[in-house]
Structure formats: C-alpha cells, structure tokens
Amino acid sequence: MNWFKRKTYPDFYNAYAESFKGKNNPLEATRFIVFDTETTGLNPNEDLILSIGTVTIQNFSIDVSDSLECYVQQEHFNADTVKIHGILKAGSIRKIEETEAIKLFLKHIEGAVLVAHHIAFDVAMINQALQRMDLPKLKNKLVDTGQLYKKTKYVKDHTHYSLDQLCNTFNITMHDRHTASGDAYLTAVLFLKFAALLKKKKNRDLRLSDF
C-alpha cells in the first residue's frame, strides 16, 4: 500500500528528526538520556512495551527534573513476566496509549544521546513501536553501558555483564530494580562511574567519540 511508503511525517516526528541536524554540542552540553523499558517479554517482534523510564545526565550530573516515566496500555499481556516488572494489566498506575508514550519519548530525547544497559534490546522495542506508527527508526547516537564498561578495562572480553552484576561490583544499592525508571537510574549511576574510570584511563578530558 502506498500509505506505508509515505515521505511526509507528522510534526512531532519532524521536530524530532530536525533536532539532530547540524548539531555538534561540546560534551558538557550534551544531554545523555539513560533509559530502560519494561516489556511483556524478550522478543521485540512479539512483545510490547509496558513502561519507559528515563533520567537525564548533563555535565556528568543526573537531573531528576528532566526525566520521563510512563506506563503503556497494551492488549497483549504475558502473565509470566508480571513477576519481574510487577505491572498488572489493570493495575492502579495511570496508563497511556503506546502512540502517546512514543510521542512523549521522542519529544524528550530530541538531540540527545541515548544510553541503556544492553541498549540493542530497548532500541529494538522502541523501533518496533515506531514501525507500528509507520515511522522510521530512532536517530539518536547510542551508548551501551555494557560496552562502556568493557572500554574502561584494558582487556577485551566477551562476557555478558548484567545490571545486577555491575551494580554489585560497583557497590550501587539496588532500589526499584525491574521498574523502568529504577533501572534507568541504576544505569545512569553506572554510566557516571564508567565515565570517571574512562577519563582516568585516557588521562584527559573525555570527548563524545570516546563513548
């Protein structure tokens, strides 16, 4: 159908796409948005987003006021994962439509660098949602905290470091684990620690290309 190949997008998407043009912010002015999604399962092709949580890091401080936390109304429901994320189909938390959540998210991440732990999965989930809205994939520069951790070390390794493992290694008290916002916050603290380690390793101020 022609409808799928349209070249014009809604205003909110255009504003989002526009935000990446010709920008070359110094690192201090760069907004890093650390995010996490809770989903009905682990297959981006079948499962759906239940919640998105973000925190913003700018100039190496977490700004709690610049954060997003939204819960998404979904028809698809997987009872097996409820015990992980705790989000019930008809729970008391206020939920919004997926399209509404994506609009909020795009607005929030305009011009920003996205950071997540094992970011490929979260980005795939968002991209699937974008596709359902007939929109292209995310345009942000992406930083994976799992990879960033490996950059802070001298040896190459292929180990998969879980968020729990890293929080334990770096003495971060885990609160609100398996809520999107809670995990985003833990990931943000890890990001700050890794940035400090990377700076020490490079023995100079960091550049965006270091991430």
């Binding site: 949580g53 925190v55 709690v64 954060s67 936390e69 609160h175 916002s181 809670g182």
Partner: peptide, 10 residues
C-alpha cells in the same frame, strides 16, 4: 504522574 526516582530520593 508516577516518579519512581523522586520517590526514592524522598
């Protein structure tokens, strides 16, 4: 709107 992080800080 729910704000898990602010609640934790509180």
């Amino acid at each position: 709107m729910k704000n898990t992080i602010a609640e934790r800080i509180l």
